[in-house]
């Protein structure tokens, strides 16, 4: 059972809640309580906009157990507009070609299930921006 492990992360998982450094204004995701840029304490919550662009991308065909039912699935590193990079699956790609630089936005989707009878795990993924901006 990984219930508590997932529960602990619900804020960042569901809604991309990170931190902002009160010293250098750096936006931090994933939250880590220490600013990676200036090394100072950074525990102030920060709600990311969810907007960003593809930094790199690929598609997984041979999945680890727990993800096998979802193949093939695209995975990207996304550059959030506030600065940080984040690794996440892409979803709802449709026929649009994904390229480095493609604008994407965060959506909350099912990441998997903790076994057949266990809890459902939800978290952020990204999709091509629904509306041009």
């Amino acid at each position: 059972m990984e219930t508590s492990q997932h529960w602990r992360l619900r804020k960042q998982r569901y809604a991309l809640v990170g931190e902002v450094c009160p010293h250098c204004e750096s936006k931090i995701f994933p939250p880590r309580d220490i600013c990676p840029d200036c090394g100072e304490d950074a525990r102030e919550m920060y709600q990311f906009s969810g907007r960003g662009e593809v930094y790199s991308h690929t598609t997984v065909y041979q999945a680890p157990s727990g993800h096998a039912e979802n193949v093939p699935y695209p995975v990207a590193i996304v550059r959030l507009e506030e600065g940080p990079l984040v690794t996440a699956q892409l979803t709802d790609v449709g026929d649009q070609p994904i390229e480095i630089g493609t604008p994407v936005e965060m959506v909350t989707r099912k990441l998997g299930a903790d076994g057949e009878r266990g809890m459902l795990v939800y978290g952020y993924k990204f999709r091509p921006a629904l509306v041009e901006r």
Binding site: V60, P64, N70, I77, A88, I100, L111
Partner: peptide, 16 residues
């Protein structure tokens, strides 16, 4: 948790 494996990471680096 996003279904990433070492192959995925290598592919992401190679693409970039």
């Amino acid at each position: 948790v996003q279904g990433v494996t070492p192959s995925t990471q290598a592919a992401l680096l190679m693409q970039r």
